[in-house]
Design a binder for these strands. Sequence first.
DNA 1: CTTGACCCTGTAGTGGCTACAGGGTCCATC
DNA 2: GATGGACCCTGTAGCCACTACAGGGTCAAG
Lengths: 146, 146
Amino acid sequence: MKGDYRIGDLARATDMAVETVRYYERIGLLPEPPRTTGNYRLYGDGHLHRLRFIRRARALGFHLDVIRDLLGMVDRPDQPCASIDQLARAQMAEVDAKIADLTRLRAELAHVANQCHGGTVRECRIVEALSGGEGESLPAAASTGA
Amino acid sequence: MKGDYRIGDLARATDMAVETVRYYERIGLLPEPPRTTGNYRLYGDGHLHRLRFIRRARALGFHLDVIRDLLGMVDRPDQPCASIDQLARAQMAEVDAKIADLTRLRAELAHVANQCHGGTVRECRIVEALSGGEGESLPAAASTGA
DNA sequence: CTTGACCCTGTAGTGGCTACAGGGTCCATC
DNA sequence: GATGGACCCTGTAGCCACTACAGGGTCAAG
């Protein structure tokens, strides 16, 4: 149950880049480990678990400052867990909003892409659609005064 | 059809920040306009249309380097428009992939959030779910050797 | 004793802006 | 003609979450 990993071991075990592990230490997400005589970082299982937690939360889209909050709660296990639940639900709402945005985007893109009937750029309706949607034409760069 | 906008007018007309307009100029997306005697930028309708094009493409999620390509094509209107269509379709594929990712994420988050039954953090199954999914417990920070 | 894998610190870069600081211009009003 | 305020200028630094060096040190195997 002790561990004793060097940073490379830890990185492999969590599928992270070594630099990312040092970065998390620098910004205070991962506690500074003890060092060997040769000044190598030496991690234990606690670090490993904490890092896995961070990685999983990142994979679920949590921002690092939210993860910092989550870790702070995890470090006070006698507190009620309602606030953790709240963060999880806020995260879900954010993801829902993003999906909605992207779905709208997708429809617009499909519309735009369907305008193309394969002539020259001059006739391309995609360009028109991107130029404002109301069919205005876009003057060439030559006329923009560069 | 001439225009003569100052940067603030242009920004208002395209609903962008003034700094963003200057930024686009700096990175070469928007051609440098002529200046007044007082060294103010003076834009014409060409700039306005080009900026609208950029904004709309950004709103559809295109990266600036792709937009740079699109503008390059627009500036050569006699070329075939197939490559524009291709960029639009690539963009759609990217959006589809993002939606798929987020949908998976959403399901996972819902699963995680549903674990909470309102006790203390110690008993919180959300924490467990974030700690690796296989029910391992996460040691407190005190044991990680900070 | 050399090779090569690994580790260290520190700094700078990514994208797409955004936010200043510290000044200059222009126009209306007193 | 002085003043105020809205606007403009350049240049630099910050945001997020890393990533990529440069330039060195450590350590075990051969």
